[in-house]
Amino acid sequence: MNSALTAIRASIVLMLLCGLIYPLVTTGAAGVLFPKQAKGSLIEVNGQPVGSELIAQDFASPKLFHPRASNAKYDPTASAGSNMMIASEDYVKSIQEKIDALHKENPSLTDIPADLVTVSGSGFDPDLSPEGAKAQVPRISKASGISEQDLNALVDRLTKSRQLGVFGEPRVNVLEINLEMLKMVQKP
């Protein structure tokens, strides 16, 4: 009986310590130290939030850089990754179709950037590989009138290198590059 009571008391005490006090203290400290990140790295334009730096959004206009395909339809209230079975004829065929579509926009492409023809793991991959961004340049240039040279230079400028020079892969944030591009268009 005594040991049952101890089990109950211990469970409740630890629930309050680990389940409430710890996250509360962490939230307080994080909010003071890193307020922007703690709220979701939101990006504002003219005082209005237009998205999060970390969450991909759907860009369909040919004038903009397109993010990677999403199984969640870019809806953060229902995340979903790719659950494609890759060792199948159907998969190879579906990728081949995407490659053909890409070739139509950019006939000179030889190596296909893998991120452009596959579905992301999270549904919100905010990045493209630099090659994946550059592969879209001919289409964007044609639609927006910005020269390919300027667009390629923009990709190079916004490419984030590996962290600490070692970790991860080089990447371009899609929302960031589209915002920069809109600024270029608006300039007289």
């Binding site: 709220k39 939101l42 237009v50 959004q57 903009l64 953060p76 209230t77």
Partner: peptide
Amino acid sequence: PQTFQGAVDVTTLEGAKQTIT
């Protein structure tokens, strides 16, 4: 993120609504 605030609604560059949890 580390916040008690719930999801935030944003208007994307193409004018669509996105609810960020």
